[in-house]
């Protein structure tokens, strides 16, 4: 249990088969560059959309923003209880620093927070499936819809978040044209013994 967030922490390896098949906890996965990286095993359990809406992960980011997915996510991953890797808390700390630097609301796109490895059309090797990446479509009144906007805010992110990586602007694989992608790598959080 995370007492601050009031969210149960579950070992996904103890979940029923249908969940494990979709979440693939602790499985070894080829990440970017072909490196083998272990998948998240510990997840926050979200019992309802109301809980996701109510739970503030930081002063400016609520849990729902990281689990707002569309029909491309398998039905079980869209129903409740729903699961998000504990490492989302690490991502949020970075986003909060970024938010303070830019001084205006930072909007995370649908499908732009955590996506399960079973999300249709998503790269299962993406850090989104670790819960450590965010796609930002708007910052204040600025849409991330052109090179100038994406590069300006990517520069800010690189300056204030040394551990973060932003996709470059462009239409090639690994690049972006309509959002700012920030990720903090393939982090896996294992809760301390007290939890």
């Amino acid at each position: 249990m995370n007492d601050v967030l009031q969210l149960p922490i579950v070992d996904a390896e103890s979940l029923p088969d249908e969940y494990r098949q979709l979440l693939r906890p602790a499985a070894s996965s080829a990440a970017a560059g072909g490196r083998s990286v272990g998948r998240p095993r510990y997840f926050y359990e979200i019992d309802s959309w109301e809980t996701a809406m109510r739970t503030e992960l930081s002063p400016h980011f609520a849990l729902w923003e990281f689990v707002d997915v569309d029909v491309r996510e398998p039905p079980l991953m869209r129903s409740f209880p729903r699961y998000v890797p504990c490492a989302v808390s690490v991502l949020v700390v970075h986003l909060e620093l970024f938010r303070r630097e830019v001084g205006v609301p930072v909007r995370i796109a649908a499908n732009g927070g955590y996506r399960s490895p079973s999300h249709e059309g998503a790269d299962p090797a993406s850090p989104h499936t670790w819960g450590t990446a965010a796609n930002i479509y708007r910052i204040g009144d600025v849409e991330m819809s052109d090179r100038g906007a994406v590069e300006r805010y990517a520069d800010i992110a690189r300056r204030v978040l040394p551990a973060a990586w932003c996709r470059p602007f462009g239409s090639e694989r690994g690049q972006t044209t309509d959002h700012l992608h920030i990720d903090v790598g393939f982090i896996v959080c294992v809760p301390g013994a007290g939890r």
Partner: peptide
Amino acid sequence: QPWHRLHVRNRFFSVVGGAPYR
């Protein structure tokens, strides 16, 4: 599933060359 939700993303790909467009 008409009640299911879709991500509204203003980025599409041309059938000629696959270039993105808005």
